[in-house]
Design a protein around this nucleic acid. Structure first.
Lengths: 238, 238
DNA sequence: ACAAAAGTGTTGAGAGTACACCCATGC
DNA sequence: GCATGGGTGTACTCTCAACACTTTTGT
């Protein structure tokens, strides 16, 4: 065991007391018919906080990267796979876990609303989707983590195009607008929205049209491969 | 020892192989006469990478927060204290330390250029300021961390007012503009800069003027206590 | 009086915002 | 033919970008 750097630490404890490291993942998905943005939670089986709802997550293995750990835990606990994932923040308050010192690297993930239903009830643990706007009591500091994740998601929507990650591969402009409206919780002007999205040139028509549903069929769009999701100079919405 | 979450991990290793957790701090400061932005580095004494330059940092104690750990390490190793600090990113690649698994929570810090000289040569280890635009070979992935920190600093300058943190308590508008020009590495228009900064209403005149130096004395400004450093709707500079 | 830095306004271009009607389809 | 959602254009305002000269001090 050696020092990563110069400081003199851990001289007193013989077995090098180390914090544990976990990842927790805030998985967002849209529930379009309900006009709701929801987070995937699991019911804890172990103490502490047994029986309480918590974010999916768990210990980082000694030989896997943080991203791998997050993806693995997410799949093990919820069956959700192939999602957009991004590191959020590392929460390391000494008292965030009442028993031992646990530092958690939080990730946030976005899954298309179409691929949600069949993935939900997966395996051992009970999982459920909760509205981010009406959360139950949560284990640890998970409420704080979700609040932070929501803030980040909204922020990212304003200057990038992550909105796609909440939609299926092919989507209509109305769906995209709804994704924005639901997460930002404010109505957007249809014409301005379309103009801005299209002028950013990061989506393209597929040629196909959506058939299900009422009314005039809508053009389907896809994310343009190779397009940079960053939106040039301005915020995306006022 | 208990599970933070539901996953089943570490069943095989009897003594629960845990990664080590460190913090590393990227301390930026302006060197105005040289028109340079520099980072504080220390020469490593221990293996691995003994004799190489590296970021200040070290292990997180079992009972201290990440921020506290970063501040403590920074003071222990460089004598630098009372700085603006913000969490940057957590680097957890399994091979970033060739000997054991070390996850590092990186912070970036800004210190006023006026309080740099007397703090430099502090104690045990050799420390020095290096231009971020011309770095030596660095231990671990510290080059990557600094690159990321610089990107974040520039980004923050564009929509917040962190520029102040690189300046003394009272400063002139020209100094503030220089801070921006040095870190962004591009010239800015004096009139547009002043108009934008002043209309944001986050600094105020002190009434005093700077006396040293040539030319017409400049008004001194200070950060307005209670002002939100976020700049309203637009990017700060083109 | 001159060197050196501080300070100050205007104009044209582009982006943002607000706003209302016709179109294509299924029933 | 009507209900339902899809799709389109224009005028006003505001912010941004470019640009050059006068003022105050020390020597």
């Amino acid at each position: 065991m050696m020092q990563h750097s110069l400081s003199s630490v851990n001289h007193h404890s013989t077995h090098y007391d180390k914090p544990s490291v976990t990842t927790d993942i805030v998985v967002f998905s849209l529930f379009v018919p309900d006009h709701d943005l929801r987070v995937l939670l699991i019911k804890r089986l172990q103490e502490p906080f047994a029986g309480m709802w918590a974010l999916p997550g768990g210990f980082v293995n000694i030989d896997e990267s943080l991203e791998d750990a997050a993806a693995r835990e997410l799949e093990e606990e919820t069956g959700v796979t192939d999602v957009f994932m991004e590191q959020l923040y590392t929460f390391g308050n000494p008292n965030r876990d009442p028993r031992t010192r646990v530092i958690t690297v939080a990730y946030f993930a976005l899954v298309p609303f179409t691929s949600v239903q069949h993935r939900a009830g997966s395996d051992a643990a009970e999982t459920a989707w909760f509205s981010v706007f009406d959360l139950p009591d949560l284990a640890f500091d998970h409420h704080e983590i979700i609040t932070y994740a929501l803030q980040r998601l909204r922020y990212k929507l304003e200057y990038t195009m992550v909105g796609f990650e909440l939609l299926p591969d092919e989507f209509t402009l109305s769906q995209l607008q709804q994704a924005y409206e639901i997460t930002l919780q404010e109505p957007l002007d249809k014409r301005n929205f379309r103009r801005k999205i299209l002028s950013a040139e990061i989506i393209e028509e597929t040629g196909r049209k959506r058939q299900e549903g009422e009314g005039r069929p809508a053009k389907l769009y896809r994310y343009r491969q190779g397009a940079v999701a960053e939106v040039k100079t301005r915020r995306l919405f006022p």
